[in-house]
Simulated scan of single mutants.
Amino acid sequence: MTAGQQAKETSASNATPTSGGIMKAVVQHAYGSADVLRLARIPKPEVAGNEVLVRVHAAGLDRGTWHLMTGKPYALRLAFGFRRPRNPVPGLDLAGTVEAVGPGVTRFAVGDYVFGVGKGSFAEYAVAGEDHLALKPASVSFEQAAVVPVSACTALQALRAGGINAEQAKTDKKVLILGASGGVGGYAMQFAKAAGAEVTGACSGGKVDHVRSLGADHVIDYAQRDFADGSERYDVIIDLAGNPSLKRLRRALTQRGAAVITGGEEGGPLTGGMDRQFRALALSPFISQKLTMIVGTERWEDLEHLAGLLQAGIIVSAIDRSYPLDEVPEAMRYFDAGKTRGKIAITM
């Protein structure tokens, strides 16, 4: 019996939110580099409705958190705060213990070990919607679970958009992952391999061994070979990094292949790499190849599916480095330098 199951049976007070108290958290009151981040003591958040208060044991650092720190591309500020972030505590990915639940929560109880996405996970406590959490697999640590949600959900949805869904059928397609050494790329390769695909990962030279270790059948070093040189064509391309032109993506696709674009940091200051994604959507109806984009979302159904894959050892979390909460600025600088192989965990 899990701690959460025991709590459900022994206490009717689980649905009563806790309030009050002070916690340590990383905060930012302006957009900018890692220099805007500092450790502070702030009030512990409260829960209501379908919200869950999680005592955070570990958090994950992802590209979305970097965007929200910098406030770039500027279009993001329309949703998250124009002059400064509305939520001063950064961080999305988390894993920890349920501390309290709102009166509308039915899937979790106090004491449950969970992972998922919350509001401001670079803190001792964070609030998450019930539909953004799943039970943590017993076989993985809090750190290993914390780095999964954003990156793995994005990878899973990108492959589905490209027509690869191991839950429905195995495939013999040839898949190319651009940006294979990052968090999303690492999970995308593992999902594609689990689906039976022949997987090629593209990365910078210093990360070739890391990409091979995650199961890639072939690895392309960007400095040594152009993936669009015409020597190989792929049924599916997952484009996670850089800014290759649509022409180059199409040159590397089979006649009816699919390219899925998500990420890509280069572009104008207003929309970043999104302009290329919008052009892909506009062109796709007029050609035989499929050009599409996704913006990853974290749903409890996908998180539960990922929990099963983690428990079974079908996917693993490749953690490059772990940093304590008071070293989040240094973790962000390391991430921003492009040195990361896999994921970065933040520990409490």
Rank of each mutant, 00 (worst) to 15 (best):
E167A: 15
R321S: 08
K72I: 02
Q157P: 06
I287Q: 03
W300Q: 13
T347W: 12
Q28T: 01
F278R: 13
V211S: 01
D217G: 08
T347H: 13
S141Q: 02
E9V: 13
E124C: 03
V110F: 06
P149N: 11
A123S: 14
S19F: 01
V52E: 01
R55T: 05
K44S: 12
Y31K: 07
P88S: 15
F142L: 02
H210G: 04
L306Q: 00
L176C: 05
M23S: 02
G71W: 08
A259T: 12
I238D: 03
D226P: 05
V147E: 00
S33P: 00
N14Q: 07
G196I: 03
E9Y: 14
A307M: 01
V101A: 07
R251E: 14
K170D: 09
V316F: 01
S213N: 05
V150P: 00
I315W: 04
R55L: 01
R86G: 08
V175I: 12
S231M: 14
D275N: 10
D229N: 15
V105K: 05
P329K: 10
Q168S: 13
G64H: 13
L133R: 06
V110R: 11
V219C: 10
A223Y: 06
G120L: 09
V184H: 04
A282N: 10
G215C: 08
R107E: 11
R41M: 13
P73S: 06
V208F: 07
I346N: 00
D239S: 15
K173N: 03
E130G: 09
A95E: 00
H305M: 11
G201H: 07
G129C: 09
